Simulated assay, not measured.
Amino acid sequence: MKWRSARRSSNVEDRRGMAGPGGGGMKLGLGGVAIVVVIGMLMGKNPLEMLGLIAQVQQQAPAGPSGPATAPPVDDEASQFVASILGETEDVWSAVFQASGQRYPPAQLVLFSGSVQSACGGATAAVGPFYCPGDQKVYIDLSFFQQMRDRLGGGGDFAEAYVIAHEVGHHIQTLTGVSAKVNQIRQRGGNVEGAEGPLVRQELQADCYAGLWAHHAQKRHAWLEPGDLEEALNTATAIGDDTLQRQGQGQVVPDSFTHGSAQQRVRWFRIGFEGGDYRQCDTFGAGQL
C-alpha cells in the first residue's frame, strides 16, 4: 500500500510512553471492573470478553519495572502511517459531507501504549482500538496491529488502515445520530446483541463505511498493491464474532454477537468498497445482514 502519498492529519495526539491508568502491571479491583463494563457498553463490546482479554494479557505480561514505557521517536514511521490514513479519512468524509451540504468535523486520534484515559473512562491495550463518543476520539495502541499479525491471522498495512477507517466510521455514526439511537435502545432495556441486533448492525455499518473510504481513497491515489484487499478481508474474517468465539470457547453463539460474523463483516466491507455509495451502507434498513 503506497500510503505515503496521502496528506498527513494534524489531529493525531501521541501519548505513547505516558503513564495511564493501570500502568506497571495493573490488577483490576471492583472499581476497575466497573470501568471496563461501562467502556464495553459505550463501545458496543461484550464486557465479559473484555475482562477475559485483560486477564489473559495480565497473566502473560512479563514481570518488570513499573515505570512508564519509553516513548518512541517523534514522527516515527508508525505515527506517520496513522496520520496519513487519518488524513485520508478526513479528506474523503469531508467530500461526502460536502456533497450533501454539510461540514465534516474530524475525529482526533490518540496513540497510546499500555493504558489510556478517555472521556469513556480508563482503558488498557487489551480493549483494542476504540472510539469514544464522549470526546469524539479514536484510541489505538499500535501493539494491536502486531497481535493482528501474530494471533488473529490478519494484518498488513491496508488491514491496519481498515481498522482505523472502521473506528472513524463510528465517528460518522456519532455525527449522524446512529450511535445515540442504539444507546437509547440499550437504555430502555432493549436487547442490542444478537446476529441481527442493533450492535451488529452498527458495527457492520462501520465496516461498510471503512469500505466506502477505501473505495474513494483508491480512486484518489491508486495506492493499493497486489494482496492489499485480501489483507483487509482476511482481517475482517479474523475478527468476526463467530471466528473469535470458535477460537475462544469452542462454539458459536449467535445470540451473543456484537460485531457480526466473519461472512457479514466481509460482505459489508465489500458493499462499501465496490459501490462507494453512502446510501448502500444502511445496515439498519437491510432486511438481511
Results as ranks from 00 to 15, higher is better:
residue 114 G to T: 11
residue 138 V to R: 00
residue 105 P to W: 15
residue 103 R to Y: 13
residue 144 F to D: 05
residue 99 A to Y: 14
residue 104 Y to C: 06
residue 82 V to D: 00
residue 118 S to D: 04
residue 105 P to S: 14
residue 86 L to R: 04
residue 127 V to Y: 01
residue 67 G to P: 06
residue 75 D to E: 15
residue 129 P to S: 07
residue 136 Q to F: 09
residue 136 Q to R: 13
residue 112 F to C: 06
residue 105 P to G: 12
residue 83 A to N: 07
residue 75 D to A: 15
residue 126 A to L: 00
residue 113 S to M: 03
residue 135 D to A: 07
residue 86 L to P: 02
residue 129 P to E: 08
residue 117 Q to D: 03
residue 85 I to N: 04
residue 74 V to F: 14
residue 144 F to Q: 08
residue 106 P to V: 12
residue 129 P to C: 06
residue 90 E to H: 12
residue 134 G to K: 05
residue 124 T to V: 12
residue 101 G to N: 13
residue 110 V to L: 00
residue 123 A to F: 01
residue 98 Q to F: 14
residue 101 G to F: 14
residue 70 T to Q: 14
residue 111 L to M: 07
residue 101 G to T: 13
residue 98 Q to V: 12
residue 142 L to R: 11
residue 89 T to V: 08
residue 95 A to W: 08
residue 97 F to P: 03
residue 110 V to C: 01
residue 69 A to G: 14
residue 114 G to M: 08
residue 128 G to S: 01
residue 132 C to Q: 02
residue 131 Y to A: 01
residue 111 L to R: 00
residue 106 P to W: 13
residue 77 E to W: 14
residue 74 V to Y: 14
residue 85 I to T: 05
residue 86 L to H: 03
residue 95 A to F: 08
residue 141 D to S: 01
residue 112 F to W: 08
residue 104 Y to G: 10
residue 115 S to G: 10
residue 111 L to F: 07
residue 100 S to V: 15
